[in-house]
Amino acid sequence: MSEKMKEVPGIYLRDAELKAEDAITFKWRPNAKYAWSGGIAYSRYLAELKNGRIIGRACRECGRILVPPRMFCDTCFRATDEWVYVKDTGTINTYSVSYLDADANRIKEPILVAVIDLDGASEGIGILHYVDPKVDPKDLHIGMKLKAVWKPEKERIGSVTDIAYFEPLKEG
């Protein structure tokens, strides 16, 4: 604020005042429901996940293999050309260890998450997923090889969570 201004407007409303018996507040929960359709590329992607496979789309112009698949290439701005299966193994691009849930509540057992560059997809084309919660966070490092752990076939629903998490790839 400018030193020429003497007063900063605004009245701090503390928790106690908000919760006071005579305080006026209005509570509301929006009740809108949505149905999102998957479109061409994601519908196939999710159907393949149900089959235990990861599929991408290739752009012949720039040579990139995109996962999750897209029907158009955003750099070349043209339709992608073909479906390509990629591996369910990959490399940690970056990772973190979350002590917060989606509402910012603290949780005891941390969630391990990583951006994973899948083998067979183009360099830098990563996906976000969980890492095996049994892994000690200290043992994780960028560049580490991981492999998908799939849910049993009967439990798969055609979702990214059909992969339960990724675990460190055992050599050999």
Binding site: G38, L100, A102, L128
Partner: peptide, 14 residues
């Protein structure tokens, strides 16, 4: 994205 990311229940801080 409701298909690729939301099912993992991310927190923005992630």
């Amino acid at each position: 994205d409701p298909f690729t990311t939301r099912p993992l229940h991310p927190n923005l801080v992630w």
